[in-house]
């Protein structure tokens, strides 16, 4: 087994993903946590957490630091970045992060509410025809062209710099600026409208904290805009489990941690059943 191959790969580095990783590790599974920087999440901005037992009003930032410390003490690897593609092949899952590929026998989706975010008008229709979720993958095809970056998640600044460095002319919008977004074009992207302003562009890089689960795994069943899971946190695809805000409301730490634990136990059972 190499350093990019695991029993269980967890997409999302918040409370659900960390909880899942700790449980998977305790069950003797090799696990890794892959996700955007949790210190840039909404939770990290919470001044105090009042409804999680035993925390005595700790801040979101301190809680995340303590949780990440648990990963480190257990020696569970963390990969900072966004999964941009997932493929099941030969009984395993392949997951790409920038230019690297990771492998696992089971997946746990735990990248938060943005993982089940609604696409912008035009986004799904023009994906691969000007809309991209991966600057390192597709950037080179836009050299010398005008592109927009919608920096909706952490790490987007680095993508902007990368695109500029390879010769793209970049219009950059932060999450706060990217309101009323509409991506325009019929066969391919020709423009972008943000808050009523129109811009002519050849490409739009939509960079959320996580690529939507329904894009990573087409066919994944959704319900009310969230991932549809059974009582054991299994999604509609074999070997794929989900936990936390991506599965629905309430968006609470206690719920996320509990679901992460259950998802890891179910993923452990799945791996065991498919061994040998």
């Amino acid at each position: 087994m190499d350093d990019r191959s695991f029993d269980i790969l967890i997409l999302g580095a918040g409370p659900a993903g960390i909880s899942a990783a700790l449980t998977a590790h305790a069950r003797g599974r090799s696990a890794a946590v892959l996700g955007s920087d949790p210190m840039a999440s909404t939770l990290a901005k919470a001044e105090r957490i009042g409804n999680y037992p035993g925390l005595a009003g700790m801040s979101g930032r301190d809680l995340l630091a303590a949780m990440l410390g648990d990963l480190q003490r257990q020696g569970i690897p963390r990969v900072t970045g966004r999964a941009t593609a997932v493929m099941a092949f030969d009984g395993r899952f392949m997951v790409s992060v920038e230019r690297d590929v990771y492998e696992a026998k089971a997946l746990i989706l735990a990248a938060g509410a943005q993982q089940s975010a609604k696409p912008f008008p035009g986004e799904a229709e023009l994906l691969g025809r000007g809309v991209s979720y991966c600057a390192t993958c597709d950037g080179m095809l836009y050299r010398g062209k005008r592109v927009a970056v919608l920096g909706l998640g952490p790490g987007s600044e680095a993508d902007r710099e990368f695109l500029q460095s390879i010769g793209c002319q970049v219009l950059y919008f932060t999450g706060a600026q990217a309101k009323n977004v509409e991506i325009q074009g019929t066969d391919k992207v020709t423009g972008l409208s943000v808050n009523g302003e129109k811009y002519a562009v050849d490409g739009v890089f939509v960079l959320r904290a996580a690529v939507a689960a329904s894009v990573l795994l087409p066919g994944l069943a959704m319900e009310d805009g969230h991932l549809d899971v059974g009582p054991d946190m299994a999604t509609s695809l074999p070997g794929v489990f989900a936990a936390g805000d991506c599965t629905g409301k309430p968006y609470q730490i206690a719920r996320a941690v509990g679901q992460g634990n259950m998802a890891a136990l179910a993923a452990d059972r799945y791996v065991k059943e498919h061994e040998g």
Partner: peptide, 14 residues
Amino acid sequence: WAVWCGPCKMQSPI
């Protein structure tokens, strides 16, 4: 494909 593209590395064995 291209060398700097992770998903391309996944496409390759298929």
